[in-house]
Design a protein around this nucleic acid. Structure first.
Lengths: 227, 227
DNA sequence: AGACATCGAGAGCAGCGCTCTCGTCACAGA
DNA sequence: TCTGTGACGAGAGCGCTGCTCTCGATGTCT
């Protein structure tokens, strides 16, 4: 089957182009040119440019998910807080190393509005991994229950629904805290990458460390043993 | 001076197109067509498509900044916490009413990497407005000093530098908390608008309320008197 | 051996950003 | 009043894009 190999060659070249020129710079003709084939032949493998983009989005989520899960596993002996910090640092590092791919995943949805069903599962791996330490800490009794504001009924239902799918024994407050931490982490990475911090804390290394430690505290994770 | 009017007609039509089809759907030729003129004539007013986009970005920041500042002023009698909540709700409402414009401001920077100097000042109005209640509360002694994690030296310098430009009497910890709240707010709005919350807390109204009240607590703002 | 599906190539369409040239018009100075 | 100058709009055109259609070649199954 040369088809699988050629399909992969196309996505590889596409990813190369996005890494260099961003999602807007992805041109089917240029990909075909680089692969030494006619542009029309490319449509045998991807019915449209958007489909190729979708494939690249899935690959991006997969790469980021792999990186985060690997970091989680490697930090296992550091405890739940160490795992959380390691995943945060890995996410930021991946984003800085692949800024255009990150923008493809977490920037504006490029064509009109998108949410192809195929991208949902790969995308969900990231928040699921981030939830890991919190879930384990909760089960081990090392994370606090938190926190001040009581959950309104509708939100509680939403969070219990999420919990039912991923960690039925974890109370909705903890799920809510995880979602907050998730949005906070990627909000910060996006702000740094997209240049919104330029006038303030722009070399954001220290601010990022400051933040993820603080979020760990919000999450009720125990104080870290070491870096 | 027909020049000013025509320039404005172009940006108005451009904004209309972006609102309908997103930033990618902005076409100089289509704008010219809609205005009944040759596409080449448009270059008398904007030297390139990117320049027109920059003008629209500035208009977007200005519109959002106006909305937030107005909300702040209107909530004056509600106290600092009420002002904070009002601005958060207004920011979210504006984003939901102008999703494509919001994506233009806070989504991926579209052409390569951008940060035209002209956009910085209009963009800075938003975090500055959000800082307002926190600054006033600090001066009135109604916000706590916070918080657990001590500031590393480099970050402290960055934050003092920011403080020196906008509120010299406010300590760096409070500036840091404001930046955190700012990234948290727009991180959440972006996640909602870009569809990342679809599987979890998707009708995000309650989660958003839950969040901004919690952030107010993190900021050390006093409990709100009323909604 | 013949029928069939798969694949690549080439031409072509409509659209895009942008450039260049040319005719028109208004206004300022002699 | 005549003339030079600058601003302006229109049109043609370049190279690029995504995408479609047709045609010939190749390989596989019956």
């Amino acid at each position: 089957m040369a088809r699988r190999e050629l399909t992969q060659a196309i996505t590889t070249e596409g990813r190369r182009q996005i890494a260099q020129h961003g999602a807007d710079g992805l041109s089917l003709r240029a990909v075909a040119r680089e692969l030494g084939m006619a542009s029309s032949a490319l449509y045998r493998y991807f019915p449209s440019r958007d489909e190729l983009l979708t494939a690249l989005i899935i690959e991006g989520y997969t790469a980021l998910g792999d990186a985060i899960e690997t970091a989680d596993a490697r930090a296992d002996r550091l405890g739940v807080t160490g795992r959380w910090l390691a995943m945060c640092r890995t996410a930021r590092a991946w984003a800085r190393q692949h800024p255009h791919e990150y923008a493809l995943l977490y920037g504006s949805p490029v064509p009109g509005y998108r949410a192809p069903a195929d991208t949902i599962d790969p995308a969900a791996r990231i928040p699921l991994a981030l939830l890991g330490p919190l879930r384990d800490g909760w089960r081990a009794g090392t994370v606090a229950g938190q926190h001040g504001v009581p959950l309104p009924a509708g939100l509680s239902g939403q969070l219990e629904n999420v919990a039912g799918q991923v960690a039925p024994d974890v109370p909705p407050e903890v799920i809510g805290a995880a979602i907050r931490a998730w949005t906070q982490l990627f909000g910060l990475i996006s702000f740094e990458l997209f240049g919104h911090l330029v006038g303030s804390v722009d070399p954001a290394d220290e601010f990022f460390e400051y933040e993820i430690v603080d979020i760990a505290g919000q999450l009720g994770l125990p104080a870290p043993s070491a870096t």
